[in-house]
Amino acid sequence: EEEKYTVIYPYTARDQDEMNLERGAVVEVIQKNLEGWWKIRYQGKEGWAPASYLKKNSG
């Protein structure tokens, strides 16, 4: 089951394993960790993003 989330704040990656996020983008969360960083898939790429910048899509 894919978990789709919408980006609610833009984010600029500060590290090579982080993802740039555009507000309104829909991403797939593939791994959650306890530090508040989630691994996401977006446009065929995978990387880490701050969970607080993502909002779960309803339905």
Rank of each mutant, 00 (worst) to 15 (best):
E1G: 07
E1I: 12
E1R: 04
E2K: 08
E2D: 06
E3M: 09
E3L: 11
E3S: 08
K4R: 13
K4H: 09
K4W: 09
K4P: 07
Y5H: 06
Y5R: 02
Y5G: 01
T6Y: 06
V7T: 04
I8Q: 14
I8D: 10
I8H: 08
Y9L: 15
Y9P: 01
Y9W: 09
P10C: 05
Y11K: 03
Y11P: 02
Y11G: 02
A13T: 08
A13L: 06
A13C: 09
R14H: 10
R14C: 12
D15Q: 14
D15M: 15
D15K: 13
D15T: 14
D15S: 12
Q16S: 13
Q16A: 14
Q16E: 07
D17L: 07
D17H: 15
D17E: 09
E18G: 13
E18L: 07
M19G: 02
M19N: 03
M19Q: 05
M19V: 14
M19E: 01
N20E: 11
N20Q: 05
N20H: 08
N20A: 12
N20K: 08
L21V: 07
L21N: 00
L21P: 01
E22R: 10
E22W: 03
E22M: 09
E22T: 14
E22A: 14
E22S: 11
R23K: 15
G24Y: 03
G24T: 02
A25H: 05
V26T: 08
V26D: 04
V27N: 00
V27R: 00
V27E: 00
E28V: 11
E28G: 10
V29M: 01
V29F: 01
V29Q: 00
I30T: 13
Q31R: 08
Q31N: 13
Q31H: 09
Q31I: 09
Q31T: 08
K32A: 09
K32E: 07
K32W: 03
K32C: 05
N33M: 10
N33Q: 04
E35H: 11
E35Y: 06
E35M: 08
G36D: 12
G36A: 05
G36S: 10
W37P: 15
W37K: 02
W37A: 00
W38R: 14
I40L: 05
I40S: 00
I40H: 01
R41A: 03
R41Y: 03
R41M: 03
Q43V: 05
Q43T: 05
G44M: 01
K45Q: 10
K45L: 10
G47S: 10
G47L: 12
G47A: 08
W48A: 03
W48H: 07
A49Q: 01
A49T: 09
P50V: 01
P50N: 06
P50I: 01
A51C: 11
S52G: 13
S52I: 04
Y53A: 15
Y53N: 14
L54S: 00
L54R: 00
L54V: 05
K55R: 09
K55G: 09
K56H: 08
G59D: 11
G59H: 13
G59Y: 10
